[in-house]
Simulated assay, not measured.
Amino acid sequence: MLVSIHDDPPILVCADLQVEYLTQGRRHVILDGDAATSRCLELLTLWRDRLWPVMHLKRIAQAAWFNPASRLTDWIAEAKPRPGEMTFEHPLPSAYSSPRFVDYMSNIRNARCVLAGFSLDETILATVVEGFHRSHRYQVVGDAVACRQPNAGDPAAYKQAVVNVIGNFATIHSSAELIKTSGAVAV
């Protein structure tokens, strides 16, 4: 099914597009940061150009390694929320740990969300699983998501394993599948 600009478009959910995840030398720097960031920005540009709804999630964990007062928790400059775009801060991996997010999502009828961003193995996984159990539909853009490096093993295999698990609770698309040349979005 394709959604055109005249239909009710899905919400683009940008998960944890924060400087912290791209800073080299940090313990939880993400894999494929440049590629994932580029695709996230392409999707963000498409949604903004079409004036479609955009939502930003920001992890503000209280753990010692994730200092919310640090500049590292700032948005990536190009992905910084604009006026009119929704933002939700969440202390735990799932966006549903934000009471405002829960309230918003429970009041949307037929919510369709396209999820892209960082923290694939935490925020995206936890949000999709919890949303599934609340009958919220999510689509994850497989080439516009990234996760931290695993403690051991092959990083690409780790990311693929997480995407495979998410596939049990959400639809997985590539950005090319999602964005059609006609300007329509597959949902």
Rank of each mutant, 00 (worst) to 15 (best):
M1V: 09
D8L: 11
D8C: 10
P10H: 02
V13H: 06
V13A: 12
C14W: 00
D16S: 06
D16R: 07
Q18A: 04
V19M: 10
T23Q: 12
T23P: 01
R26L: 10
R26F: 05
L31Y: 07
D32S: 13
G33E: 05
G33A: 15
A35Q: 15
A36R: 00
R39P: 00
R39F: 05
L41K: 06
E42D: 15
E42N: 14
L43Q: 08
L44E: 04
T45H: 13
T45Q: 14
D49F: 02
D49E: 15
R50L: 12
R50F: 12
L51T: 15
L51R: 15
W52I: 07
P53K: 07
V54F: 02
V54R: 00
V54H: 04
M55L: 14
L57Y: 00
K58H: 11
R59P: 00
Q62T: 14
A63F: 09
A64W: 08
F66N: 10
P68S: 11
P68H: 11
A69W: 03
A69M: 13
R71W: 09
L72C: 08
L72R: 07
D74W: 06
E78C: 04
A79T: 05
R82H: 12
E85Y: 04
E85G: 03
M86A: 14
T87Q: 11
P91Y: 06
L92Q: 15
S94M: 05
S94L: 02
S98C: 09
S98G: 05
S98F: 01
R100K: 14
F101M: 07
M105E: 04
R109S: 15
N110R: 13
A111L: 10
A111G: 09
A111I: 04
C113R: 05
L115G: 00
L115D: 00
G117W: 00
F118I: 00
L120T: 13
D121F: 04
D121N: 12
I124M: 03
I124E: 01
L125H: 08
V129P: 02
E130R: 12
E130I: 03
E130F: 07
F132W: 09
H133D: 11
R134H: 13
S135E: 14
R137L: 09
R137P: 02
Y138G: 03
Y138M: 14
V140P: 01
D143L: 03
D143G: 05
A144T: 04
A144G: 03
V145Q: 01
V145A: 05
A146G: 08
A146P: 05
A146V: 06
P150L: 06
P150S: 03
P155W: 02
P155G: 03
A156K: 11
A157Q: 15
Y158K: 06
A161C: 12
V162I: 15
V162L: 10
V162W: 03
V163F: 04
N164F: 07
N164E: 14
V165I: 14
I166G: 00
G167L: 09
G167I: 09
N168C: 13
F169H: 12
F169C: 07
F169Q: 02
T171G: 05
I172E: 02
S175E: 12
A176I: 12
I179C: 13
I179F: 09
K180V: 10
T181N: 15
T181H: 12
G183V: 05
G183H: 09
V185T: 08
V187P: 00
V187G: 00
